[in-house]
Write a protein that binds this DNA or RNA. Structure first.
Lengths: 337, 337
DNA sequence: TTTATGCGAGAAAGCGGTTTCTCAGTCCGT
DNA sequence: ACGGACTGAGAAACCGCTTTCTCGCATAAA
């Protein structure tokens, strides 16, 4: 006859009664504490097994002050980049017995701070991807979020590892590549206006323009998804540019799709580049030239940093910088003479 | 001067002291209980605001017996299908103030049961995608998982909504489409051997073969990812089939990529079809003919079912069946004469 | 034989909330 | 003026588990 506690689930008390010991002893046995008589331990284990007892994680969490869970705030779960970060993070964390709680901010920057705080309280730490949040707000909430790992944002706060992709350098590499192919009129199909990583790209473009004053670089408004690229076809054609740097791979794919519909040859008439090297970038037609970002690795590293923080290993809590690697494929070619 | 409890965080006791009331009263105020004198309530609110007090969710969870979190077990976070389910689920759940905890089983079926149990105990309910688990094991663990929503599996257990995609019908529709184009030699590039949805597809194919005895259908071993399709090129060419039904879009894309490298024209020489209609399917070259599954919607529905279960609305806890819709694009064409 | 020593397990105190129980104090009716 | 109903807030129990505290008992030393 299986006793049931008030909640209807089997608790430590049930096991204690069945084994004829106190629940303190059951706890000791379940946690491998060896100060328990082997006979009693065996009895407890038998009782636990028979009742299929599994400790209630909420009770454990309250007593231990840890949840074995970390949170991640992402602006858009539909974006392959954040999917990859999530994947890398989740898998690395799972290796150490941690689970990941998701908070999707839907690109609503006002939500990001609230979600972050809420997620943080439920978890032992937080990985924050908040590209739209203002610097001021970011700095304000950071103290309440520790242990915290920041993705693609920097902070003056100490003890907050920041994993940032060098978008500026990546954009410069791509622009150089296009120039080397003979293109003299480029266009940048920008990302969301308030995007932090877009700002980094613009800085890179400024550096590029300073180094190549003879190259004409047109700025076009854009966004971060496929449709943005698709809708930008007119603007791109009007610009007269022959080398297009899209904000990311999705935008580039949308653009190529639109250009294809117009009968514009890529890379014959126009060269198109992306950014990120999402899994599908190599399978577009033509295969997309892009700047490869080791994003799953970044997700894994985020966990490494988080683990160090949680374990309070004061050591390598610095963060790291990722250099995109230029992946030259078939979407770029020599400029038309 | 801010007092701090043992854990270093601000707790209900700190607010109680600052407001000069008992913590019971603080709890009442924080939960909008109107049996509190307005003056006192205001004092408590002021104290809470000044201390930036936020209730500890773990404490609340223990007291209330709910975590406002649901878990989802997926076999592979890199698979666009599960990403879409996760997305739909997460967004719908967020509308009702619930968060989602992820458990990635890495396609290891032996892990699925353990992960499911663990995730379930941490959460108020579980959404289970376990395509590799045996029926016997599934039935065995189901009772301990309630409230549970099953994706693409069926069960004899009552009170377990099952959301299933009619893969069998989808495969038949695709096969019919190819036959209507004049193809008489088809090949099915199968999914993982122990996949439940693959079994459904095979049943659909059997039905199709029974209805079209004159059509030759070759079975080829496969898998579920891009590389599988890419590696299957030789087998596909050897089969002599002119209409290929790939297990899913990823496999189809890999196959098209491989065929392209061999100089085989799609759909001129061979027609290729996928399954799922993942976001990129329409942007392959040629655009992929596939069976569109409303998978994000399925994720949302999963939450609706879960919510009904959690709220114990005995009503529509039935689940539903999703009919794939044939999306004819450019990867299929008339059979070569 | 008596006392110091140690070991193992039960009792109890948290962890941070919610909620029931209890009991002053107030208001009203008689 | 006295008693009953009601109101509102504090005390305490409880959620399920971990861990310290405490103490009985057994063994060893004196």
């Amino acid at each position: 006859m299986v006793r049931r506690s008030a909640t209807g689930r089997i608790g430590i008390a049930d096991v204690a009664v069945k084994a004829g010991v106190s629940h303190a002893t059951v706890s000791r046995v379940m946690n491998g504490n060896f100060t328990v008589d082997p006979d009693i331990a065996a009895r407890v284990k038998a009782a636990a097994a028979e009742l299929k007892y599994q400790p209630n994680p909420v009770g454990r969490s309250l007593a231990l002050g840890k949840t074995d869970t970390i949170g991640i705030v992402v602006p858009d779960l539909a974006n392959p980049t954040f999917q990859a970060i999530l994947r890398g993070l989740s898998r690395a964390a799972a290796q150490d017995g941690y689970r990941v709680l998701i908070a999707d901010s839907f690109e609503v920057s006002s939500e990001e701070a609230i979600l972050a705080g809420e997620a943080r309280r439920r978890c032992d730490g937080l990985v924050l991807c908040a590209p739209r949040m203002s610097d001021a707000e970011l700095e304000e909430i950071i103290p309440s979020l520790h242990p915290l790992v920041l993705i693609n944002r920097t902070t003056a706060a100490k003890g907050v590892p920041t994993l940032v992709v060098d978008y500026g350098q990546g954009v410069q590499d791509i622009a150089e590549h296009l120039v080397n192919l003979g293109h003299t009129r480029l266009a940048f199909l920008a990302g969301p206006p308030r995007s932090a990583s877009n700002a980094r790209r613009l800085e890179g473009l400024d550096a590029f323009k300073a180094a190549h004053p003879q190259v004409d670089v047109t700025m076009l408004e854009g966004g971060s998804d496929f449709d943005t690229g698709h809708e930008a076809v007119d603007a791109v054609l009007e610009s007269g540019a022959t080398g297009i740097l899209a904000f990311n791979d999705l935008v580039a794919m949308g653009l190529m799709s639109g250009l294809h519909e117009r009968g514009v040859d890529v890379p014959g008439d126009i060269s198109v580049t992306g950014f990120d090297d999402i899994p599908f970038a190599r399978y577009t037609t033509p295969a997309l030239t892009t700047a490869a970002v080791p994003i799953t690795e970044l997700g894994q590293d985020a966990w490494q940093q988080m683990r160090a923080l949680i374990r309070q290993e004061g050591s390598d809590t610095s963060g790291s910088r990722y250099q995109p690697r230029l992946e030259v494929r078939a979407s770029t070619g020599p400029a038309r003479k």
